[in-house]
Design a protein around this nucleic acid. Sequence first.
DNA 1: GTCTATACACTGATAGAC
DNA 2: GTCTATCAGTGTATAGAC
Lengths: 188, 188
Amino acid sequence: MTSTRDQIIETTCNLLEMQGYHATGLNQIIKESSSPKGSLYYHFPGGKEELAVEAVRRVGDIVLERIQQNLALISGPAEAIRSFIMNIALNVERSGFRTGGPITTIALETASSSEALREECQRIYTAWQAAFVEKLRAGGISQDHAVDMSVMIIASIEGGVILCRTGRSRKPLEQVAQAIGEWVKHSL
Amino acid sequence: MTSTRDQIIETTCNLLEMQGYHATGLNQIIKESSSPKGSLYYHFPGGKEELAVEAVRRVGDIVLERIQQNLALISGPAEAIRSFIMNIALNVERSGFRTGGPITTIALETASSSEALREECQRIYTAWQAAFVEKLRAGGISQDHAVDMSVMIIASIEGGVILCRTGRSRKPLEQVAQAIGEWVKHSL
DNA sequence: GTCTATACACTGATAGAC
DNA sequence: GTCTATCAGTGTATAGAC
């Protein structure tokens, strides 16, 4: 069944987000997902790298949906994006600063060591960017301007997550949320 | 002599920036620094973690000086910061997208697994922030506002580096430089 | 498809000669 | 202070029974 496969992927998603790629061992994955090692290599013949690509793809798609749903809750782009970033801050805090930025660590770790993982991370960042572009365009911003702004938005969120986890505080992301909110509002 | 110790630290700085903490092994460090393992444990009895703390401290201090020097080159805060970020973009590209964000990967990897490394990274982020605050204050911005803005600046740079290395392009950091520059200018 | 046992390289770390 | 040899543990990956 796909259930075993799914459980391995889900466990991998969580461990990769908390620990990163190189700190997460296959032994830990099979232990926490209660799956024997034989099954892992049956479902993912490419081993750790193939499994990680699959995990990154899954968590990336889930987060994309979450972005779209959150941005749809509030009509104005500025307030919608500000509110979305505030939510991230709360979630990072709630996890005890152990999660947040589900693909950030993997992106950095594997950017120059695994082409497959780098490409998958790049694909996801592009998809996330498109979701912000769509929201900004709906607010009347031009395509080119919306693309530039979305890069800035994603960069400041990713960096904000790093500062929150390092400083054990939700404040950096709250400051980012406020700054981005006002900046987008002023650009409308 | 401190020469051996220094060479080990310098090599560790470079490897940590390119590969991260868990992907960098002590064997690689002693090999590339031409230092035997015995010397490593003589100079760093605390092993890998103590060595990494020392390396993070060193690269953090060097980058702090570079920030201060760069910001001093141009009198206006907006243009000075914009120019500084553009320089980072060029350096990331010049390295073949293998370096940039010297402590970013370590900060993420060790935020919830090594208190010593997390505290050192946090100390450095605070020092970098103070450098930007000073520059913004010199431009007439209030203390509170300058602190908030500096968090935003550092977050967007850190995130921008991630997007550049993942996408193998200097463009994200150029977009961040442009956006931050205009944003600071408008805040003056 | 599932599971166990195992191969083999490599990790961080240590002991002790020099 | 410097260097080599080596430890115990763990990493990814594989073979083969069921």
